[in-house]
Amino acid sequence: MRRCSALLAAAVLAGCATPPAPPRAYVALLENADGSTGRVVYRGPSGTAELRQPREAVALDGPATPFTLSPAQLQRDAGAAMAAQPRPPRVFVLYFDAGNAQMTASSQALLADILADVKSRATADMSIIGHTDTVGGAEQNAALALRRAEQVGQMLKEAIAAAQQVEITSHGETNLLVPTPDETPEPRNRRVEVTVR
C-alpha cells in the first residue's frame, strides 16, 4: 500500500511539473536572417505584452503574459509556413571609375556570384540600377548611370536569361549612398546596385 501511494504521489508531481501546452493562437517573435531580433508590442483585450527574445510569444485569446516556445513546438506549429517563405533579396553593389562606365576589378569578380544567386532560386527577379556621384550635370549623370546599368546587364546576359523579370534603370545622382555637395567625386556613389529576389 505504501509503495502504491508513493507511485501515485510521483505521478501527481510529474503531472504538475509538465508545462502547459501553448495556446492554439499566438503571436511569436522570430529571429531575422542575420540573427538579430526586433521587438513586438501586442495589445489585446486582456492587456499588453512586449516580446523581445527569439521565440517569445503571447496568446491571442488569453492573458497577455509572454511565454517561450520550444523549438519543437515552433516547428510543429509554423514549420511549413517558415519553409515556404521566399529567400530574402540579395543586393550586390558594383563600383565604377570616375566619369565612365568602367567597372572596378573587385566588382567584376562579383558577377559570378550574381549569376550563381539567380540560378540558385526557383524563380528570380532582378533590378539593375545605375548611380553616379555629383560631378557633372544631372542629365549627363542620368545618362552615365543608365549606361553603367545597361553595361552590367550585358555582362549578366546569362543571369538575365534565367530571371523571370529584369528592370534596368538609372537614378543618376539623385539617390546618393554617401550624401555629398554638388561636384564632389565620391567613389561609393559611382555604382550599380543589382538586387536579386
Rank of each mutant, 00 (worst) to 15 (best):
R148E: 13
N100Y: 04
Q164F: 05
G99N: 14
S106T: 15
A109M: 03
S107M: 09
A84P: 00
R147I: 12
L156E: 04
E158F: 04
A142V: 03
F96N: 03
V93C: 01
G99L: 11
M126A: 03
P88M: 02
R148Q: 15
L115T: 12
T132R: 07
I129W: 05
G137V: 06
A116N: 05
D133S: 08
L146V: 02
L146E: 04
D97N: 12
Q102H: 12
G130E: 08
G130A: 07
S106E: 15
G130V: 09
A122D: 04
N100K: 12
D97G: 12
A80M: 03
R121M: 07
V166A: 05
E167W: 06
A162T: 06
Q140R: 09
N100M: 09
Q108D: 14
D125G: 02
R87H: 00
N141T: 08
M82F: 01
M82A: 05
P89E: 11
I160K: 13
F96I: 04
A98Y: 09
Q165T: 11
D117A: 13
R148F: 13
G130R: 06
T169H: 00
Q151W: 06
A138P: 12
Q85L: 13
F96S: 03
Q140V: 05
T169D: 10
L115P: 01
E150K: 13
D133Q: 07
A80C: 04
A138M: 11
K119M: 14
I168S: 08
A122Q: 10
G99F: 13
L146R: 08
A78Y: 03
G153H: 05
D117P: 08
I114R: 02
Q154W: 07
Q102T: 15
G136I: 01
A78H: 02
A80Y: 03
E150W: 06
D125Q: 02
Q151M: 13
T123G: 05
A116L: 05
A109R: 10
M103S: 01
E167H: 10
P89M: 10
R147D: 15
L156W: 05
V166Y: 01
V91Q: 06
L110D: 12
M155C: 02
A142G: 09
V135K: 09
L111M: 10
L110I: 07
D133F: 07
Q102D: 09
A149V: 11
E139Y: 08
L144R: 10
A161F: 10
A109Y: 05
L115M: 08
A161M: 12
Q85M: 10
I160A: 14
